[in-house]
C-alpha cells in the first residue's frame, strides 16, 4: 500500500465513523467555555442518564431505518409495556426478585411481539411500515389506556427505584451502562453477523438479495422484532429512572429516536449508517438540551436553536459523504 492510499483510507475511516463526532466535539467545547458547570463530572453523568432511553430506542430504530423502513409506534409501545411491566412489579403476590425478573421479561417479550406483528403485516401485505406502525401507535396507546384505566402506576419496590439512580464511579449511571452495552452488542450484530450484513444488503438493493435466494421477509421481520425488543428494554429503563409507569408517557419519543438515527448519518432510504453514529446523534441532542439551558437560553429560543443544529448537522453530513466519495474515485 502506498503512502498516499494509506492516508486516504485513514481519512476515509475518520470521515465515515467520526464525522458527526466533530459536531459533538464543537458543541462540548463551546458549552464548556460558555457555561462553567457544563464540563463537571456530575453534569456529564446527568447527560449520560438523559440520553440513555433515547439511545436504546434509537438502536432498534437504526435496524429498521437501515432497511428503508420506519417505526412510529415506539413511544406508544413504551407506554403499553410500562403498564404491563408496572402491574407485575407492584403485584403483592410476587416476591421481589420474581417480580423484577418477570416484569423485565414480559416487557421485552411484549415489545418483541409487537415488533413482530409490525414486521409481519408490513411484509405480508407489502404495506409501508409508516402506515402499519402509525396504526400500531394508536392500538398500543389505546390498549395502554384501556388496561390501566388511564391511571399512573407507582410505589415500585425501593430497591428497584434505588437501582434507577445508581451511578458507578460518580460518572457512569446504571441505565447508561445498559445503553452502552446495547450499542456495542448492536454494532457487533450489524458488522459481524450474516443477519447484520443482510440488513445493509436489503437496504441497498432488496430485489437483488431476493433474487440471490435469501429469505428477505425473515430478515426484515427480525429487524422489526429487534426494534420492539429494544423498546421493551427502554421501558424498564424509563421505569427505573422515573419510578412510575403511565399510559401517557413516551409521546413523541419516536421523533427523538428518528432524529438521533438521522443525525448519526443513517440514510432514511436505507443501506447506509452505523450504531456509533446513532449513539453520537443521541449524544448531540442530549448535549444541546443540557448545554443550551446551562448557558441560560430561554425555552422558545432553545427549541429554535435545536432545530437549526439538527438540520445543520445533517447538511454537514451530506458534504462528508460527497467528500468521502470523491476520495474513493
Amino acid at each position: 500500500m502506498s503512502e498516499k492510499s494509506r492516508l486516504r483510507s485513514v481519512v476515509n475511516i475518520f470521515l465515515k465513523e467520526v464525522g458527526i463526532g466533530v459536531v459533538l466535539l464543537v458543541l462540548v467545547v463551546a458549552f464548556s467555555l460558555g457555561a462553567p458547570r457544563f464540563f463537571s463530572i456530575i453534569n456529564v453523568a446527568n447527560i449520560f442518564t438523559q440520553i440513555s432511553i433515547n439511545t436504546v430506542i434509537a438502536v432498534g430504530m437504526t435496524f429498521v431505518i437501515l432497511l428503508g423502513g420506519i417505526d412510529l409506534s415506539v413511544g406508544s409501545v413504551l407506554a403499553l409495556c410500562s403498564i404491563i411491566a408496572g402491574k407485575i412489579l407492584v403485584n403483592p403476590e410476587l416476591s421481589f426478585g420474581m417480580a423484577i425478573v418477570l416484569s423485565v421479561l414480559v416487557s421485552v417479550v411484549s415489545g418483541m411481539l409487537i415488533g413482530l406483528i409490525n414486521g409481519f403485516i408490513s411484509e405480508t401485505w407489502k404495506i409501508h411500515s409508516f402506515i402499519v406502525t402509525l396504526g400500531m401507535l394508536n392500538i398500543a396507546r389505546g390498549l395502554a389506556l384501556q388496561i390501566s384505566q388511564s391511571r399512573t402506576i407507582f410505589n415500585f419496590p425501593k430497591a428497584f427505584n434505588d437501582f434507577g439512580t445508581t451511578t458507578y464511579f460518580g460518572v457512569l449511571p446504571a441505565i447508561f451502562l445498559i445503553a452502552l452495552i446495547l450499542v456495542i452488542l448492536g454494532s457487533i450484530i450489524l458488522r459481524n453477523t450474516v443477519f447484520g450484513r443482510m440488513i445493509f444488503a436489503i437496504g441497498n438493493n432488496e430485489e437483488s438479495v431476493r433474487l440471490s435466494g435469501h429469505n428477505v421477509k425473515f430478515y426484515k421481520i427480525l429487524a422489526y422484532t429487534i426494534c420492539g425488543g429494544t423498546v421493551g428494554i427502554a421501558t424498564i429503563m424509563y421505569m427505573l429512572r422515573m419510578s412510575i409507569a403511565s399510559p401517557i408517557l413516551g409521546v413523541g419519543f419516536e421523533l427523538n429516536a428518528i432524529a438521533a438515527v438521522v443525525i448519526g448519518g443513517t440514510s432514511m432510504s436505507g443501506g447506509k449508517g452505523s450504531l456509533v453514529g446513532t449513539f453520537l446523534g443521541a449524544s448531540i441532542m442530549g448535549v444541546l438540551n443540557n448545554g443550551l439551558l446551562l448557558i441560560g437560553m430561554g425555552d422558545f429560543a432553545r427549541q429554535i436553536v435545536t432545530g437549526v443544529i439538527i438540520i445543520l448537522a445533517v447538511i454537514l453530513d451530506t458534504y462528508r459523504t460527497r467528500f468521502s466519495a470523491m476520495l474513493n474515485d
Binding site: 457555561a35 458547570r37 457544563f38 456530575i42 442518564t49 424509563y238 408517557l249 438540551n289 439551558l293 441560560g296
Partner: peptide, 21 residues
Amino acid sequence: SNTAHWETEEANTLMTNLLTK
C-alpha cells in the same frame, strides 16, 4: 422559570439540568 410541557420525563431532565446551574 422554564416549561416542561406538563410531562414527567421532561420535568425530570429540566430539573436535573437546572440543579447543575
